[in-house]
């Protein structure tokens, strides 16, 4: 189906985003070279690429640190999301009691609680993982709870008539049915995770893209600043792509669109 849909889209349209980005980069290069903006404030794209290459080994190490924090936080968030969602789904009273609290955790801005977490947990990996956990578990939990609630009641009745236990109803009906919603939540969580890691790293630590960012900002190395921003964005994008890839591989039944 996907092949058909894609072949209908003319090549022109598929090239469009790439062309626009190329044009914007060209414009940026032009503005920096022309001297309209001082080079130290807006380094040219070429200078950014140079900075990226010069610091690549250092950035590579920082990237791995940030990525591992993000992955640990995400995995913990996913585990917690499944447990919380199943508990809330199987108990209506608990659902009512806990949901406002869940919502509250999301209204507190990450940037505001990050310093507290650092004070409580120190400069190691713990406050980073904790912040990522707090920002990531919500979209996954809400996705799962919503999907569980939308489970076809007739299907539940049918499974019960087949003699299914509560556990079997989750295993054969609710959990597999919730997978598309789970992955939708996970895509959002994946993008939050890198941002969360960087914010936590700003406040202290020995390594990570956020630490690098703070260091180069203090030395007014704008080219390096841009380089690390690009790298952070690329990392988020790569993580989202990875989630999409896993989704496609693990849900072969889904209609491609």
């Amino acid at each position: 189906m996907k092949k058909n849909a894609q072949s209908i889209i003319p090549d022109k349209q598929r090239l469009a985003p790439g062309l626009l980005i190329a044009a914007l980069i060209a414009l940026w290069q032009l503005v920096s070279v022309s001297g309209l903006v001082p080079a130290f404030m807006l380094p040219s794209p070429l200078a950014v690429v140079k900075a990226l290459r010069a610091d690549i080994s250092l950035l590579g190490r920082d990237l791995l640190v940030t990525l591992s924090e993000a992955i640990i936080g995400l995995v913990l968030a996913i585990v917690a999301a499944f447990i919380i969602a199943i508990i809330m789904d199987s108990n209506a009273l608990l659902n009512r009691a806990v949901f406002p609290l869940l919502l509250f955790t999301q209204t507190v801005p990450a940037i505001a609680i990050a310093p507290l977490l650092v004070l409580w947990m120190g400069y190691g990996i713990a406050p980073k993982v904790a912040l990522i956990f707090l920002t990531c578990f919500f979209p996954v939990t809400v996705g799962l709870i919503g999907a569980f609630a939308q489970t076809d009641k007739e299907a539940v009745q049918l499974l019960r008539s087949m003699g299914a236990s509560q556990w079997q109803i989750y295993a054969y009906l609710k959990l597999p049915g919730a997978m598309p919603a789970f992955f939708a939540g996970l895509r959002i969580a994946a993008s939050y995770s890198i941002v969360g890691a960087v914010i936590a790293e700003w406040l202290g630590g020995n390594a990570g893209l956020g630490v690098y960012m703070t260091r180069v900002r203090k030395s007014y190395s704008f080219d390096k600043m841009f380089a690390v921003i690009l790298l952070t964005a690329a990392l988020s994008l790569a993580l989202i792509k990875l989630v999409v890839f896993i989704q496609k591989k693990s849900l072969p039944w889904q209609e491609e669109d």
Partner: peptide, 19 residues
């Protein structure tokens, strides 16, 4: 009491994620 008869509701209720 459910579970005493085999039944098929109007909607086939085939699960899209199972073959």
């Amino acid at each position: 009491k459910a579970g005493y008869v085999s039944y098929m509701p109007q909607n086939d209720l085939l699960m899209p994620y199972r073959t």
